[in-house]
């Protein structure tokens, strides 16, 4: 499983996103441009220039027509995937830390940073997935996070809920249409920030990553914590694999001393856990700094990680990965096969 190294960024990676088909990868970093890559060979499709600050976040619509990005320059921007053309810029009073399209790409949420005189918010924009359409300036909804700022957020199935992860370690469920808060539940240790929130394919559950060194699998409908994965390092990102019941966690303590052995030898690891049994099953090392973002290929063929070291590593799973099964999983597959399912 030799990874492909993508070196198109000069600064720390902030987020990686696959498109729905898993053939393209979009990456953002603190170096002010977005990169698009072909996942199978790591060739660069293009870059998207225009932001005037670190870029914290990127997402691609389900038809791979447009991407949205959020930046420290206090804007959300919309871009045409194919040409790199900037289609729209929305201005905010503070940095935008997270953007996410809903399941049909007609709405985009943005998480804005808290700063003196400004509370953190979650804003919603109406989107036309059409590169020739005029995009609306108007924010259709603003959720103000007056308790603890949101650090990450996303859309559930049917765009029914907006789920947010907060700085204080709690998770909130808001109505996707009205923005009313239904629940706020402390799922991680108090004041241990939630650093990532990613969905399964039908958006009925999601995974969080936290500085408290754990990751949780949570039901979108009632915020029930169904699984917990314990690591030995603060976590920055977590993703759910398709085809196999695994999750991948990324993190690591920033090396204060650059001569630290782990940094010199590329020992920062992506950790694989069994999604259902919560057991760690393997690690993949390689980065020279903490993993800031991990993403699973939606077709199940591989995953990518982005590090504080400025590299993206794209991995394609080998046969051993697909063959690996617990005894009870094999038993279940055989039973389903026998029933013709």
């Amino acid at each position: 499983m030799r990874p492909i190294l993508l070196s198109g960024h000069e600064r720390a990676l902030t987020q990686i996103k696959y498109n729905r088909e898993g053939d393209l990868l979009f990456s953002t970093a603190k170096d002010q441009h977005i990169c698009a890559w072909f996942a199978h060979n790591g060739e660069r499709l293009g870059t998207y220039h225009g932001h005037q600050g670190a870029i914290w976040t990127v997402d691609v619509d389900p038809t791979t027509t447009i991407i949205a990005s959020g930046s420290a320059d206090n804007t959300i921007r919309l871009w045409e995937v194919k040409t790199g053309k900037l289609l729209k810029t929305w201005d905010f009073p503070t940095a935008v830390k997270r953007v996410e399209f809903n399941e049909d790409g007609t709405k985009l949420l943005g998480v804005t940073e808290k700063r003196m005189g400004h509370l953190g918010t979650i804003v919603v924009l109406d989107i036309k997935v059409d590169v020739n359409a005029e995009q609306s300036d108007e924010k259709v909804m603003t959720i103000v996070c007056d308790e603890s700022k949101a650090t990450v957020a996303g859309w559930s199935y049917l765009s029914k809920y907006i789920i947010a992860g907060h700085e204080d370690g709690s998770v909130s469920q808001y109505d996707g249409k009205t923005g009313d808060l239904y629940y706020n539940i402390p799922v991680h240790e108090l004041n241990q920030q939630i650093t990532d929130l990613q969905w399964n394919s039908d958006r009925t559950y999601f995974i969080t990553a936290s500085k408290d060194k754990t990751s949780k699998l949570i039901s979108a409908k009632d915020l029930e914590v169904m699984k917990t994965y314990s690591a030995d390092t603060p976590l920055n990102s977590a993703t759910i694999t398709r085809k196999k019941d695994f999750v991948i966690l990324g993190g690591g303590q920033a090396a204060m001393d650059v001569t630290t052995t782990s940094a010199r030898q590329g020992k920062f690891e992506a950790r694989f856990y069994h999604k259902i049994f919560e057991e760690e099953i393997g690690r993949v090392r390689g980065h020279f700094g903490p993993l800031n973002t991990v993403a699973a290929d939606p077709t199940g063929k591989g995953y990518a990680s982005g590090g504080e070291d400025g590299y993206v590593r794209v991995h394609h799973f080998d046969k051993g990965y697909f063959d690996f099964e617990y005894e009870v999983e094999r038993e279940r597959h055989n039973k389903l096969a026998a029933e013709g399912r």
Binding site: D202, T204, Y205, I276, F277, E327, V328, R332
Partner: peptide, 25 residues
């Protein structure tokens, strides 16, 4: 093994039920 079998069944029955609810909605 028994505990894992239980976890596996519990997980898949939850997700199947969730998928049915979603399809109905």
């Amino acid at each position: 093994v028994e505990a894992r079998r239980h976890l596996l069944n519990e997980w898949y029955s939850w997700h199947e039920q969730m998928q049915e609810e979603l399809a109905d909605e």
